[in-house]
């Protein structure tokens, strides 16, 4: 059995939502789909960014399509436990995985106990692009990447708190490129990494979402943007590519089903997700969180994962 913390939206709320929702049903779905409630299986515990996005998507899918959708959390091994279990689901498309770039592009190359790769799944699309940035507390003697690298060179070393392996890889790549000693400090979860940076215990930190409100409040400075394009909340900060480093870390929240899912259902789910991410309620939430509501679509996600997997496979082989 494959199960953990499970939840359905309350039936009362579901009925109310169905009654209020205008039946949009733009997605073309087989007549008998879905034949049962749909589970969004989140590969992380409740409370994180992935979980929040999945819950929002679940409530919108429910409103827009009139399906019963509930969220289950299957944390463990950065989504690995969930993805491995998802492969056992049948072809009816009632189990949808919600994971991150780490789940699909890093896990398979990190651990020998993970027996899947990104090619074992179909992709409905993505829900949110994370704002990866190298940031630090304001008031430090450096405010961009060059100055930070100089600081590290003068001091002999600089510490960077990282909440996950992909951030650690990014830090090691930057250190290697400039030939300085940057020490990644492994931390359980990004929020604790953020706390150590705000307290001045480390020289910088890599963050995905939580630093945005700190930057808006003037408490932190973005040293470098790690995504391929500049971030809207820090338009002055250069990306790594602009800094002359051929490295971009794009992180996405990804919706996927097992490869053997019925192809008509796959199309249906992809369209349903697109409807969610295009809705104004969804983009409003993303705007308020200063995040990009980007949906790469089915093909976009696949080619993105192909490239990212290749990158991490090489990075981890060393």
């Amino acid at each position: 059995m494959f199960s953990s913390i499970m939840k359905k939206a309350s039936p009362v709320f579901a009925t109310v939502a169905c009654a209020l929702a205008t039946p949009a049903l733009a997605a073309t779905c087989p007549a008998d789909f879905p034949d049962g409630p749909i589970a969004l299986k989140v590969g992380f515990s409740a409370g994180g960014g992935t979980d929040s996005v999945a819950r929002k998507a679940a409530s919108l899918l429910q409103q827009q399509q009139g399906w019963t959708v509930y969220v289950e959390n299957h944390p463990g091994a950065s989504g690995g436990v969930m993805a491995k279990g998802l492969l056992k689901a049948d072809s009816k498309g009632l189990s949808i995985g919600v994971g991150s770039t780490t789940t699909l592009a890093i896990n398979p190359y990190k651990s020998k106990d993970i027996n899947y790769t990104y090619q074992d799944f179909n992709y409905m699309g993505t829900g949110m692009m994370l704002n990866y940035g190298l940031t630090t507390k304001s008031g430090k003697p450096y405010s961009n990447l060059e100055e930070f690298v100089e600081y590290a060179r003068d001091k002999g070393r600089a510490t960077v708190s990282v909440g996950s392996l992909s951030y650690e890889i990014a830090v090691r790549n930057i250190a290697k490129h400039y030939g300085v000693r940057l020490i990644p400090i492994p931390t359980k979860g990004s929020s604790r990494a953020l706390k150590d940076a705000l307290g001045g215990h480390v020289d910088a930190t890599v963050q995905g979402t939580a630093h945005v409100s700190q930057i808006r409040a003037g408490k932190m400075v973005q040293l470098a943007t790690l995504t391929s394009e500049r971030a809207t909340y820090a338009p002055e900060t250069k990306t790594l590519i602009e800094n002359g480093l051929d490295l971009a870390i794009d992180g996405h929240i990804i919706f996927f089903t097992p490869k053997h899912t019925d192809s008509q259902i796959q199309t249906c789910l992809t369209e349903a997700l697109a409807e969610v991410t295009e809705s104004s309620e969804y983009t409003d939430m993303m705007n308020k969180l200063q995040a990009a509501a980007s949906n790469l679509g089915a093909e976009g996600t696949t080619s993105y994962l192909q490239a990212t997997s290749k990158f991490y496979q090489e990075a981890l082989a060393k």
Partner: peptide, 11 residues
């Protein structure tokens, strides 16, 4: 809070 579009933070 995030589902309601509120990001906890210094602001």
């Amino acid at each position: 809070l995030m589902i309601h579009g509120i990001q906890p933070g210094p602001l």
